[in-house]
């Protein structure tokens, strides 16, 4: 017992101050991409160069789909190097089409649930996590929210073992053909009203496996999605920020 106490004192108090204090992310962290609209006339290279189909021209300017973007360090999309990643980890959106990043336009970050749902879930949100064909990195960064650094429990959010106990599903992975039925059954087993949260590029749009006949190219083609959290995988703060926004516990913007 004394050894435990001594070790506890040495390890110190480590729970983070988020959301009161902004997290310090490493200098090389790749968050919200920024597009500089200085394309040479007639250039439409980006539409063909991203292997994951995250770029296209919209209204004559490049646009980037955060839902498909894997935040590659060696992003090949723009031959002019006009895409760069900022350290902004806030990427949550309520609608699939709001994940399009266009130059000069602010990202429309996730807004809170309707008052009725906020009343139900605002102080206690139980989620059933369904891992459906990914690489287990998104799962790892959801798990990490349970550690004392993030301490998800202090926000009243908890992962639960049974869909019957859950207020919603948090889905990761590109929904492999072999997980589709289990995912839909888990959704059915969750009592209404229920939320669906898509975490990571795979769940949002197939991610690196997009195009494989074994995966689905977007959870929103199977279930109504209430919150999209981009990234490969999303940083734990991206996930936490998104969950808190959904519950109306983050200032918008």
């Amino acid at each position: 017992m004394l050894r435990v106490i001594a070790e506890r004192l040495r390890q110190g108090y480590r729970t983070g101050q988020f959301p009161r204090v902004e997290p310090k992310l490493p200098a090389r962290f790749r968050g919200l991409p920024e597009l500089t609209p200085e394309c040479p006339p007639g250039c439409a290279e980006c539409a063909n160069r991203c292997p994951f189909g995250a770029c296209e021209l919209r209204e004559g300017a490049p646009a980037l789909d955060l839902g498909r973007c894997l935040f590659c360090a060696d992003c090949p999309a723009c031959p002019q190097g006009l895409i760069h990643f900022t350290p902004d980890y806030r990427l949550a959106a309520r609608k699939r089409e709001l994940l399009w990043r266009q130059p000069g336009k602010e990202l429309d970050l996730a807004w809170p649930l309707a008052p009725e749902l906020r009343r139900l879930f605002g102080r206690s949100l139980k989620l059933r996590q369904v891992s459906a064909g990914g690489c287990n990195a998104c799962e790892a960064d959801c798990n990490v929210l349970g550690t004392l650094v993030f301490d998800l429990g202090r926000f009243g959010i908890q992962f639960v073992a049974s869909p019957r106990h859950a207020d919603g599903l948090l889905v990761t992975g590109p929904v492999s053909a072999n997980m589709r039925q289990a995912l839909l059954a888990t959704y059915e087993a969750t009592p209404a009203p229920k939320l669906v949260i898509a975490v990571g590029a795979c769940a949002i749009g197939g991610g690196p496996f997009r195009g494989s006949p074994e995966v689905t190219s977007g959870l929103d083609s199977l279930l109504p999605v209430d919150l999209f959290l981009p990234g490969c995988p999303p940083h734990p703060y991206t996930i936490l920020d998104g969950l808190l926004r959904l519950l109306g516990r983050r200032k918008t913007g």
Partner: peptide, 11 residues
């Protein structure tokens, strides 16, 4: 197993 199968080798 097989639930996480994404068809990687064929890709």
């Amino acid at each position: 197993l097989g639930y996480q199968h994404r068809g990687l080798e064929r890709l």
